[in-house]
Design a protein around this nucleic acid. Sequence first.
DNA 1: TGAACTACTTAGCCTCGCTAACTATTCCTC
DNA 2: GAGGAATAGTTAGCGAGGCTAAGTAGTTCA
Lengths: 145, 145
Amino acid sequence: MTPTPDAPAELASVLRIAVVRLSRRIRSERDPELDLGLGALSVLGILHREGAQTIGSLAETERVRPPSMTRTVGCLVDRGLVVRNKNADDGRQVVVELSEEGWRVVEAERRRRNAWLARQLAELTADERDLLRRASDLLGRLATA
Amino acid sequence: MTPTPDAPAELASVLRIAVVRLSRRIRSERDPELDLGLGALSVLGILHREGAQTIGSLAETERVRPPSMTRTVGCLVDRGLVVRNKNADDGRQVVVELSEEGWRVVEAERRRRNAWLARQLAELTADERDLLRRASDLLGRLATA
DNA sequence: TGAACTACTTAGCCTCGCTAACTATTCCTC
DNA sequence: GAGGAATAGTTAGCGAGGCTAAGTAGTTCA
């Protein structure tokens, strides 16, 4: 059936389309209450998991340019979810960390945040979820390659 | 190590982040020659695989609102890659199909288009690619769920 | 025949990427 | 230790590509 079952080019095409569409789908399912973009949510998640970070390191992790991260962080500061601090050792750096409010929001939203996707995933078989779990790791590696 | 190894919520979080990041990465790698957005490329791909389609059906396939698809198709028309035709049976519908130029471009770009991703995929093992192939199918199903 | 519905378009907004250019700070060399 | 290069972040402004609301043209049906 498949003439070249292992051809990377063909897989690239299929994978690209699937990833882009799913990304759009996820975007369209975000919680309307907390009107934060996906990038902002992602940053909150990073700060929650890994603690305070500089703008630069957040930008690198998210694979975004510094100005974009400055803006994202600016939004979060405006909503009081994170605080900006100057690094005492290197005055050029800005260290961003979750505020108390930010912690509360992340903790509270963590469960709701993935609601749609989690609901879809719950309808798959355990084998399929396991497949996706391993695939996620690969996708993550591709994203940072 | 994993307290609940099959928990959909946890997988949702991991998968969401991986998909969104990879999607950004793919976007940043598109061919600068052919200055078409990802959406436009995707539409060309659909028309190539499935033949002429109405705006509405393209919008549905791409999970986008009709006005967005109107604009995307407009771009493609401007570049002479597709043609808009009125449906003879139902004058409200617009049927979009690839122009000769569009065919040529799709055929020619098909291989180059996925270059970056295909290159990354080529560095994986055959098993990993197989994993991703099966995952792509699942991701596609999630995207249209 | 005229009201309701449908397919698409137009107008205009918003998010969130980007680059270019600027400021502030640090580092490095003489 | 003064001065230029390098680095971190910001500001300004652009562009892609989603969206909704409202308008137009064609179709259906009472």
